[in-house]
Design a protein around this nucleic acid. Structure first.
Ligand SMILES: [Mn+2]
Ligand SMILES: [Mn+2]
Ligand SMILES: [Zn+2]
Ligand SMILES: [Zn+2]
Lengths: 147, 147
DNA sequence: AATCCTTTAATAACTATTATCATCTGATAA
DNA sequence: TTATCAGATGATAATAGTTATTAAAGGATT
């Protein structure tokens, strides 16, 4: 692991009161040291090369911990449940990052997305999907109440 | 089921060479007759009120069939696998609807999204996520080869 | 080095989804 | 209308993905 990455890792662990374990170090490195959008399984396979006895559950737990701490992001808030949309009109989605609720957002609520550069060659565009992530009214209310 | 919805359903089934079964009719209706972004389980519970002996597997199979035919859409192309992103720079994603691969797309490749109207009251915005759905180079090549 | 609290590995449990297969049914043509 | 049959269904087994449990081990602090 690069010295710079290692220092950043220690700093982040301290900031979030997390013990800087070997496992966490390797998991973090597996994600940060190469571009990509990996699944827990892929991270597990990668880390196992250095720490053969690591458990898949440890990978899951720490990925959750890191995401919760804001050190990493989820690609999609919808993994884990298949959701179907019958609305054929062009529209966007409001997604609550707490309760995962999905609400339609009128097409005209946002200005159009404009292509500036070129897409990578060979990619055949089908459509733009815009998700607005945030915290819904109900979840905001619930959080406020607790404090 | 409204006459109009029923006719549309028959038309779509004919167009896609699908038998217009009771089960399909009720599944279609459960989605089209009320706004929402339902899971297979939720559709199952709804349809079961009319067809108590319907199987959950039938719901899954037909939702897939309908999505494949373009009669319904998936809310997210990422269901089923949790993917982690370590890239903290603002950026977008290219997602292949065939192989589900995810590629970063530079922030400047798209113009900024502008808020026009108001978001629904109480929704606390965190960030915009733009996914560009399409077919990647490899999948396009693979499809071309087959014909 | 001793202590304490956190983290880990192993694995059981659980949830979501898909596969299998015998039976049944909608569509078509006689 | 009835016969036919490819395609659809229901029951359930199997698989994939994720989370919970718990005894043992390891960082952090002193
Ligand atoms: Mn929608
Ligand atoms: Mn990315
Ligand atoms: Zn919410
Ligand atoms: Zn592809």
């Amino acid at each position: 692991m690069r010295r710079e990455t290692y220092n950043e890792f220690r700093r982040l662990c301290q900031k979030h009161s997390l013990a800087a374990t070997h496992q966490r170090q390797k998991i973090y490195e597996a994600l940060v040291s190469r571009p990509g959008h990996y699944s827990p399984e892929e991270i597990y396979e990668q880390v196992k090369q250095d720490l053969p006895s690591i458990s898949l559950a440890t990978v899951y737990k720490n990925l959750k911990t890191f995401v919760h701490a804001g050190m990493l992001c989820e690609v999609s808030p919808h993994h884990g449940s298949w959701r179907i949309d019958a609305n054929h009109h062009p529209h966007h989605h409001l997604v609550c990052t707490r309760c995962r609720s999905i609400t339609d957002l009128d097409f005209d609520s946002l200005g159009p997305v404009k292509l500036r550069g070129k897409l990578p060659s060979g990619f055949r565009l089908e459509k733009f999907t815009i998700e607005v992530r945030g915290v819904c009214k109900a979840c905001t209310a619930a959080e406020t109440k607790q404090h």
